[in-house]
Amino acid sequence: MFALRVACAGLLFLTACASSNKSVAPVRESRAPVHSAPVREGGAYGFGPEDPVRVGWGNEGMMAFLELLRGPEGQRVAWRRLGPSQGLEVFEVTYEGLAAPVQLYLDPLNSGAIRAPSGFNIEGLTSREPLPPEERPQVIEL
């Protein structure tokens, strides 16, 4: 009975440690226009350790963010984990047409409002910019 428990625990451990390596998506050669590095107007959100993308949820949060991250024209991104830095995870990210890969800093331990770093989009995320007062819907109190 003890051997069965140890075998089950070992199998559970191996299953939990196994992961599929979706980290590197092949970048196809094409004659698509070459984009310059993403414009960092409005700050360095995600491009440095001083203002990382706070994804939370550990590895699952980082993988979910990277799966939804897109180039400015909806291109899927290819990424490679470079390793930890100052408690953050650093990824080299590129997409078809980007002149050179960029480094993004993700915080897997702390969560916050997610937005796309400058020069990127997030699939399915609509703008979360607040509407100007004249465009806000009127609230009717009952």
Rank of each mutant, 00 (worst) to 15 (best):
residue 1 M to H: 09
residue 3 A to T: 11
residue 4 L to S: 08
residue 7 A to K: 11
residue 8 C to F: 08
residue 9 A to P: 03
residue 10 G to H: 08
residue 11 L to Q: 10
residue 12 L to R: 04
residue 12 L to I: 10
residue 12 L to K: 02
residue 13 F to E: 09
residue 13 F to L: 14
residue 13 F to Q: 11
residue 15 T to C: 10
residue 16 A to D: 05
residue 17 C to F: 10
residue 17 C to D: 08
residue 19 S to W: 12
residue 19 S to T: 10
residue 21 N to E: 14
residue 23 S to C: 12
residue 23 S to M: 11
residue 24 V to G: 08
residue 25 A to L: 11
residue 25 A to C: 10
residue 26 P to Y: 11
residue 27 V to F: 06
residue 28 R to A: 14
residue 29 E to W: 12
residue 29 E to R: 14
residue 30 S to P: 04
residue 31 R to K: 08
residue 31 R to F: 07
residue 35 H to C: 06
residue 35 H to K: 04
residue 35 H to Q: 03
residue 36 S to G: 07
residue 36 S to V: 01
residue 38 P to D: 00
residue 39 V to L: 08
residue 41 E to N: 08
residue 42 G to D: 09
residue 43 G to L: 05
residue 44 A to Q: 12
residue 46 G to T: 08
residue 47 F to L: 02
residue 48 G to S: 15
residue 48 G to D: 15
residue 48 G to Y: 02
residue 49 P to H: 09
residue 50 E to S: 14
residue 51 D to V: 15
residue 53 V to S: 05
residue 55 V to C: 05
residue 55 V to W: 00
residue 55 V to Y: 01
residue 56 G to Y: 06
residue 57 W to P: 00
residue 57 W to L: 01
residue 58 G to R: 01
residue 58 G to M: 00
residue 59 N to M: 09
residue 60 E to C: 02
residue 61 G to A: 04
residue 61 G to D: 03
residue 62 M to I: 01
residue 62 M to C: 15
residue 62 M to W: 00
residue 62 M to L: 04
residue 64 A to W: 11
residue 64 A to P: 04
residue 64 A to S: 13
residue 64 A to L: 14
residue 65 F to Y: 15
residue 65 F to A: 04
residue 66 L to D: 04
residue 67 E to D: 15
residue 67 E to N: 15
residue 68 L to K: 15
residue 68 L to Q: 14
residue 68 L to I: 07
residue 70 R to E: 13
residue 71 G to L: 04
residue 72 P to E: 00
residue 73 E to R: 15
residue 73 E to G: 11
residue 73 E to D: 15
residue 77 V to D: 06
residue 77 V to P: 05
residue 80 R to C: 06
residue 81 R to P: 02
residue 81 R to V: 05
residue 82 L to M: 10
residue 83 G to C: 04
residue 83 G to M: 01
residue 84 P to D: 13
residue 84 P to L: 05
residue 85 S to D: 14
residue 85 S to Y: 08
residue 88 L to M: 15
residue 90 V to P: 00
residue 90 V to L: 03
residue 91 F to Q: 08
residue 92 E to N: 05
residue 92 E to P: 02
residue 93 V to P: 02
residue 93 V to H: 03
residue 95 Y to S: 03
residue 95 Y to V: 00
residue 96 E to T: 11
residue 98 L to Q: 05
residue 99 A to I: 06
residue 99 A to Y: 02
residue 99 A to G: 05
residue 101 P to R: 06
residue 105 Y to S: 02
residue 107 D to F: 01
residue 108 P to R: 00
residue 111 S to G: 09
residue 111 S to W: 12
residue 114 I to F: 08
residue 114 I to Q: 07
residue 114 I to M: 10
residue 115 R to L: 14
residue 115 R to F: 11
residue 115 R to V: 14
residue 116 A to L: 08
residue 117 P to C: 10
residue 117 P to Q: 07
residue 118 S to C: 10
residue 120 F to E: 04
residue 122 I to V: 14
residue 123 E to P: 09
residue 124 G to Q: 08
residue 124 G to I: 09
residue 124 G to Y: 06
residue 124 G to A: 03
residue 125 L to P: 06
residue 129 E to G: 06
residue 129 E to H: 13
residue 129 E to Y: 13
residue 130 P to Y: 09
residue 132 P to A: 09
residue 134 E to H: 09
residue 135 E to S: 09
residue 136 R to N: 03
residue 136 R to C: 13
residue 140 I to W: 13
